[in-house]
Nucleic acid binder design. Structure first.
Length: 90
DNA sequence: AATGAGCGA
């Protein structure tokens, strides 16, 4: 498996490719997923990156709190949500 | 459809 990394505070200018490129410098990136607003379909400003555990830690140490395209990047291990998003059924 | 703290489709 891979380690899920939470990447937040992303500028609306970047794409998965940019992030993947950035993270790829610290290890093999298995996958990059940007969270799009399910209502509008627009970029919500954060995403998740899957990397090897060692690579993930390296990337977090290297990129967390750093600047990315003009915004302070937030990088941490994702943990809070594993299954489908909790949502009330009205 | 829209924008700025956030942990997801």
């Amino acid at each position: 498996m891979s380690t899920s990394i939470y990447v937040g505070n992303l500028p609306f200018s970047v794409s998965e490719e940019d992030v993947r490129n950035h993270f790829a410098s610290y290890g093999e990136v298995f996958n990059v997923k940007f969270i799009m607003d399910r209502e509008t379909g627009r970029f919500r400003g954060f995403g998740f990156v899957e990397m090897d555990e060692a690579a993930a830690k390296a990337a977090i140490e290297a990129l967390d709190g750093k600047d990315f395209n003009g915004r302070t990047l937030r990088v941490n291990e994702a943990n809070q949500k594993k299954p489908a998003r909790p949502r009330r059924d009205y």
